[in-house]
Design a protein around this nucleic acid. Structure first.
Length: 950
RNA sequence: GGGCGUAUAGCUCAGUUGGCUAGAGCGCACCCCUGAUAAGGGUGAGGUCCCAGGUUCGAGUCCUGGUACGCCCA
C-alpha cells in the first residue's frame, strides 16, 4: 500500500497542475486603492490622451452634479455608466477625453451656509457670504472627487470644470450676451413667494407649511356682457352674477379675471338673500349648488338653466369695488372640489393665475410693497395697510357693496418663511426672462431636437412635449450665491442697461477676477463702455441684485467647457450627453435652449438617459425612507469592481432595482469570472517562456477551434452591445461564456490535456494557445466594466510582442475569421447535444452509487442515423468531450427512437471495467500493458518516458 | 389631474413581423469530485407572461380599459 501510494505521489509530481500568483481572493477594498494610486502616479489618463492624440474624437460631455453631500447610488450609476462609455470608446480607438464638472452655485449651499451662521448671517456682507459658500462648494467638490475616483472613474480629475471658475463664469456671460443681443431677454412682472417680514424672495425649498386659520369669502360679481343664452330665456333679463370663493380676500384688489373649466357643468340659480331680502341671480358649478347654498341655509333655490363652462369664455363682469371690468377665462385646473367652481384670478398673486394671465394677455397687478403693505393703486381706505390686517376691511367693502354672499373661517396648510416663521404671500416683482417664442426659439429648438439621436427613443417625444408646452424661462433669482445678472439701472428713470456689449464687458472682467468683482467693486468701476453716463449719471445708477438661475449656468457648459480651449474637450457639439431622465426638463433642456439661441444648433449629437435607482420592491430610494443603500459604504465593503459589475448587469433604460442582496449576488458573479481567469492564468504560468507564433495551427484540436470560434461570436456580440451602450448584454454574454462555455465545458475537458500531456508538447501548447487567446481578448472586453481587476489580470498575463503597459491602453479585440469553421461547429454541437443526454444517464448511475466521477462511467447511446454517421468516426473526440471512460455509439433503427427521432438516447451504461490510470485517473484499456509502468495508461507511460529522457 | 415610461421564474435578462409544450444564466434543492479546493462538475424543482375585456383558428406578443411603480409637471 505504501509503495503504491508513494508511486502515485511520484506520478502526481509529473503532472502540470495549475499554479499562479493571481489570488483567488479578490480583496478589492485593499487592491483597488493601490491600483488607483499606481494609475495616478504614472498619469495613466495623460498616457491615454497622448496615445489617442490625433484620432477621431468622440466626447462624452459630463453633466455637473451638485457640489453638496456625499455621492449616492444615483451618482454612482451615472458616473460608472459614463466611465463604461469613455473607456470603451478609448479602446475602440477614439480620442475620448473626459472632463468631469461640478455645479457649485445655488440655493442649497447658500441655505446651508446661512443656516450654519444663524444670527451672525445678518452681520455679514453679500461678499462674505459668498466666500463661505465658495469654501463649502469646494469642500464637497474635493470629497465627491475622491469618491468618484474610488469608483475607478477615469478622467481629467486634476482639471475639472467648476461653475464657479472664472473661465466658466465668463462663458456664461458669453451665452447671456448672445441671448441679449438676439432679443430673447426681457423683464416682466411675475409673482413669487415673498416674505414680508424679511422683505425677501423665497424659493420653494425655503417654505415650511403650517396650519393657519384664514377668512374665506364667497363673492358675487355682476356680469356686464356675455351672459350664456340659456340664462336669458326669460323676458325679465335680471342682472346675473358669478360667484367666486377665495381664502385671500386681500388679493381681490388685484382681481382681473374669473376662471371656469370648459367642460364643467355650471348652473344659473335664483335665490332670495335672507338678510337683504334681495332676489339674486348667480352662477356656480352645478355640483356645488347644494353645498354652497346650504352654508346660508337658503330655503328656496331655483335652478334656471345649466351650461358648460366654455360658454362663459369671453364674458365680462364688473369688479365689486373698483372701477374696472374683468374677463371670464377658461383653465383646466379649475375643479368642482371646493369653492364654487369659478376661480378668482389675480395674476400678480398666484402661479396658476399668472400663467392664465399670460395666456390671455391680462395685466399682472400687485399693489403690495416689499413690507406687505398696500400701495396707492388700491382704494384709499386700504392704502398703507398690511395685507393680512386689511382682510377684514376688504370683507367690509364686500358687504357694503352687497356682493358678499357668505364669509367663514377655514383651517388650512399655508406656507411660511423658513427663517421668519411668518406666513408668506405671493407678490409680483420684476424678473428676467428668456422669451421662448421670440425669434422662433421654441420652433428652432424643436427642430434641433428632431435632429438629435435620443436613446431610448421615447426621450425625443418626452422633451419635445416639454419644450412645446413650456412657458417663458425665468432666469433671475433673488439670491447671493450665483452669477450676477450684470445690469445697471437708473433709479430715476427706471432704465435697465443690459446689452450684448455691456455683458461682454463684464465677461472680460469676470474672466480676470471672477463674479465677485460685481459684488466688491464700486459701481463707478463697473460702468460698461456703451452706457451713456451723460444721460444716466453714475450717482443715479444702481447695481442689479439678481443672480442667474443655476440651470442657466449649467446649461451654458457647451460654451463654458466645450468651446473653452483650456479644457480640451471640444469639439462643439458633443458626441454624447448621458444623464438621468429627469434632465429632459433640466440640463438637456437648458442646454439645448441656450445652445439653439446662441448658435442655432443642439449642443449634442446623442443623448442617452438612464432611469432611477429604486429599492428591491421598486420603490424610490429615499434618504429618510431607510431603504437607501449607501454608495460609499457599499464600495468600501464590496469594492468598486463589484458595484460596477452590478451597474453593468442592469438595463438602465428603466428604473434600476438595487439592494444589498443584489450586490451579494453580483459578488458571486464577480468571483466566478475571477476564478475563470485564475484557471486560465494557472495554466499559462510556463507559457511565458513560449513563443505563441510558433504554434502550428494544425495541432489545434477540434474543440480548440470551436472554442476560438465561440470567442469570435462573443467578441462580435459584446462589441455590438458596447456600440449600442447595452452594457448588460455585454455583461451577460461574457459572464455566461465564462460560466457555461468555458468553466463547465471547455476548461473541464481541457484538464486532461493540460495536466497530463508533456509540458511543452504540441497537445498542451495548442491548448495553452487557446487559453492565452481567450484570456487576452476577454480581459480587454472586461476592462471598461471592471478596470481594476482587468488591470490586475493584465499584469499577470504573459508578455507578448506589443503588449502595452496597461490594459486601458490596449486596443479592443477583433474577431479572427481563421477560427470560423461551420463544419467543425456542427460536429461539436452534435457532440454537445449527445453530451447532455449522456450526462442525464450518467447522473442516474451516480445517484445509484454505481459511479462517482464521470471518468469512471461508460454509456451506450442510440443515435439517429444522421448523427450516428457524423459521430461514428469521432469516437475518441466524443468520449473526450463527455469525459467518460467509454462511449459506445449505436445507430438507431428507424422506429426505435420514439417521438423525437432527432434526439439521441442512452440505453445502457455503468461503471467501466477498465483499470484506472494512477496518473491521469482515466479508466483505460491500456492500463497495465506497459511493463515498466503497470499502473499507467499508454499515454501516461509515453509521457513519463519522454520526461525521463530530458 | 396631465405628459413620458416600465410590468415574463426568487434575481438579472431573452422571447424578431402573433404559432410557446414560454427560454438562459445566477440563486435554490439534491448528488459527485477533492489534481481550479473558502474552488470545480452534474441533475432537478421553479412561471394564472400585472389584471379585465376584445380581435383571431391561435396572443407573452395586436387593440381597449384598469392596477402598481418610476420620472417630470400641475
Amino acid at each position: 500500500m505504501d509503495n503504491e501510494r508513494s508511486g502515485a505521489k511520484a506520478y502526481k509530481d509529473t503532472l502540470n497542475l495549475p499554479m499562479t500568483a493571481f489570488d483567488m481572493k479578490a480583496n478589492l477594498t485593499v487592491r483597488e486603492p493601490k491600483m488607483q494610486a499606481r494609475w495616478k502616479e504614472h498619469n495613466l489618463y495623460g498616457q491615454i490622451r497622448k496615445a489617442r492624440a490625433g484620432r477621431e474624437r468622440k466626447v462624452l460631455h459630463d453633466g455637473p452634479p451638485y457640489a453638496n453631500g456625499e455621492i449616492h447610488m444615483g451618482h454612482l450609476l451615472n458616473k460608472v455608466l459614463k466611465d463604461f462609455v469613455v473607456r470603451s470608446l478609448t479602446m475602440r480607438g477614439y480620442d475620448s477625453p473626459y472632463v468631469p464638472g461640478w455645479d457649485c452655485h445655488g440655493l442649497p449651499i447658500e441655505h446651508k451656509v446661512v443656516k450654519d451662521l444663524g444670527s451672525k448671517a445678518a452681520a455679514l456682507s453679500q461678499s462674505e457670504v459668498r466666500e463661505l459658500c465658495q469654501a463649502e462648494a469646494l469642500k464637497w467638490v474635493g470629497i465627491q472627487r475622491d469618491q468618484f475616483r474610488r469608483l475607478g472613474v477615469d478622467g481629467d480629475w486634476e482639471n475639472p470644470y467648476l461653475t464657479l471658475d472664472p473661465r466658466y463664469e465668463a462663458g456664461i456671460m458669453d451665452v447671456l450676451a448672445d441671448l441679449v443681443e438676439g432679443g430673447y431677454v426681457f423683464r416682466q412682472l411675475k409673482p413669487i413667494h415673498w416674505d414680508m417680514h424679511d422683505r425677501t424672495a423665497l424659493a420653494e425649498a425655503e417654505l415650511e407649511y403650517q396650519d393657519v386659520t384664514s377668512p374665506t369669502v364667497y363673492v358675487n360679481f355682476p356680469l356686464t356682457s356675455g351672459v350664456p343664452a340659456s340664462l336669458n330665456a326669460e323676458s325679465e333679463r335680471p342682472v346675473w352674477h358669478a360667484m367666486i370663493w377665495t381664502t385671500t380676500p386681500w388679493t381681490l384688489p388685484a382681481n382681473v379675471a374669473i376662471a371656469a373649466h370648459p367642460d364643467l357643468n355650471y348652473a344659473g340659480i335664483r335665490y332670495t338673500d335672507p338678510e337683504t331680502g334681495q332676489v339674486v341671480h348667480t352662477i356656480l358649478a352645478a355640483d356645488l349648488v347644494a353645498k354652497v347654498t346650504a352654508l346660508k341655509g337658503l330655503a328656496e333655490v331655483e335652478e334656471i338653466a345649466r351650461f358648460k363652462g366654455r360658454e362663459l369664455d369671453g364674458a365680462r363682469y364688473q369688479h365689486v369695488f373698483l372701477p374696472r371690468e374683468g374677463l371670464f377665462v377658461l383653465a383646466d385646473y379649475v375643479s368642482a372640489e371646493d369653492g364654487t367652481g369659478l376661480v378668482h384670478t389675480a395674476p400678480g398673486h398666484g402661479t396658476e393665475d399668472y400663467q392664465t394671465g399670460q395666456k390671455y394677455g391680462l395685466p399682472t397687478l400687485s399693489p403690495v410693497d416689499a413690507a406687505g403693505r398696500f400701495t396707492d393703486e388700491v382704494p384709499e381706505r386700504l392704502v398703507g395697510k398690511n395685507v393680512f390686517t386689511a382682510n377684514p376691511e376688504v370683507v367690509l367693502m364686500l358687504k357694503e357693496s352687497g356682493s358678499l354672499f357668505h364669509e367663514l373661517p377655514i383651517r388650512h396648510s399655508y406656507p411660511h418663511g423658513w427663517r421668519s416663521k411668518k406666513p408668506v404671500i405671493f407678490r409680483a416683482t420684476y424678473q428676467w426672462f428668456i422669451g421662448v417664442d421670440r425669434n422662433d426659439l421654441r420652433q428652432k429648438t424643436l427642430e434641433a431636437i428632431a435632429g438629435v439621436n435620443w436613446l431610448p427613443g421615447w426621450g425625443k417625444s418626452r422633451i419635445d412635449a416639454m419644450v412645446s408646452g413650456r412657458p417663458d424661462w425665468c432666469i433671475s433669482r433673488q439670491r447671493a450665491w450665483g452669477v450676477p445678472i450684470p445690469v445697471l439701472f437708473c433709479e430715476k428713470t427706471g432704465y435697465h442697461h443690459l446689452t450684448g456689449e455691456s455683458v461682454r464687458f463684464y465677461r472680460d472682467l469676470f474672466r480676470k477676477e471672477g463674479t465677485n468683482a460685481w459684488f466688491r467693486k464700486p459701481l463707478a468701476e463697473l460702468i460698461p463702455p456703451d452706457l451713456d453716463t451723460t444721460k444716466y449719471p453714475v450717482e443715479t445708477l444702481s447695481k442689479g441684485t439678481d443672480i442667474l438661475d443655476v440651470w442657466f449656468e449649467s446649461g451654458s457648459s457647451h460654451r463654458s467647457v466645450l468651446r473653452e480651449p483650456s479644457y480640451d474637450v471640444g469639439p462643439f457639439p458633443a458626441f454624447l450627453y448621458l444623464e438621468g431622465s429627469d434632465q429632459h426638463r433640466g440640463w438637456f433642456q437648458s442646454s439645448i435652449l441656450t445652445s439653439v439661441g446662441t448658435t442655432g444648433k443642439a449642443p449634442f449629437e446623442n443623448v442617452l438617459t438612464h432611469g432611477f435607482i429604486v429599492d428591491e420592491q421598486g420603490r424610490k430610494m429615499a434618504k429618510s425612507g431607510g431603504n437607501a443603500v449607501s454608495a460609499v459604504k457599499a464600495t468600501e465593503q464590496y469594492g468598486a469592481d463589484v458595484l460596477r459589475l452590478y451597474v453593468a448587469s442592469l438595463d438602465y433604460a428603466d428604473d434600476l432595482r438595487m439592494s444589498e442582496r443584489g450586490i451579494k449576488e453580483t459578488s458571486e458573479a464577480y468571483r466566478k469570472i475571477r476564478n475563470t481567469f485564475r484557471y486560465l492564468l494557472g495554466n499559462l504560468e510556463d507559457y511565458k517562456t513560449f513563443d505563441p507564433t510558433t504554434v502550428d495551427l494544425s495541432t489545434l484540436y477540434p474543440e480548440d477551434r470551436w472554442a476560438l470560434g465561440q470567442l469570435n461570436k462573443v467578441i462580435q456580440d459584446v462589441t455590438k452591445a458596447f456600440d449600442r451602450f447595452e452594457f448588460y448584454k455585454a455583461y451577460q454574454r461574457i459572464y455566461q461564456f465564462c460560466s457555461v462555455t468555458l468553466s463547465s465545458f471547455y476548461l473541464d475537458v481541457l484538464k486532461d490535456r493540460l495536466y497530463a500531456e508533456l509540458p511543452n508538447g504540441p497537445e498542451r501548447r495548442a491548448a495553452q494557445f487557446v487559453l492565452a487567446k481567450l484570456h487576452v481578448d476577454l480581459v480587454r472586453m472586461l476592462a471598461p466594466l471592471m478596470p481594476h481587476t482587468a488591470e490586475e489580470i493584465w499584469d499577470v498575463l504573459p508578455d507578448e510582442p506589443g503588449k502595452v503597459a496597461s490594459v486601458h491602453l490596449a486596443d479592443w479585440p477583433i474577431a479572427d475569421d481563421r477560427w470560423d469553421d461551420s463544419e467543425n461547429d456542427t460536429l461539436i454541437d452534435a457532440i454537445l447535444q449527445l453530451r447532455d443526454v449522456v450526462f442525464v444517464g450518467v447522473e442516474g448511475y451516480r445517484k445509484a452509487k454505481i459511479i462517482g466521477s464521470n471518468q469512471e462511467a461508460t454509456a451506450t447511446a442510440l443515435l439517429p442515423s444522421v448523427t450516428f454517421k457524423r459521430l461514428e468516426k469521432k469516437r475518441e473526440l466524443t468520449t473526450r468531450l463527455c469525459i467518460v471512460a467509454e462511449l459506445v455509439l449505436e445507430e438507431a433503427p428507424n422506429d426505435s427512437l420514439s417521438g423525437a427521432e432527432t434526439e439521441p438516447i442512452v440505453v445502457a451504461g455503468g461503471k467501466s471495467t477498465h483499470p484506472k490510470c494512477e496518473r491521469c485517473w482515466n479508466y483505460r484499456e491500456s492500463v497495465g500493458q506497459d511493463f515498466e509502468h503497470p499502473t499507467l495508461c499508454e499515454r501516461c507511460s509515453r509521457v513519463i518516458r519522454e520526461l525521463n529522457q530530458d
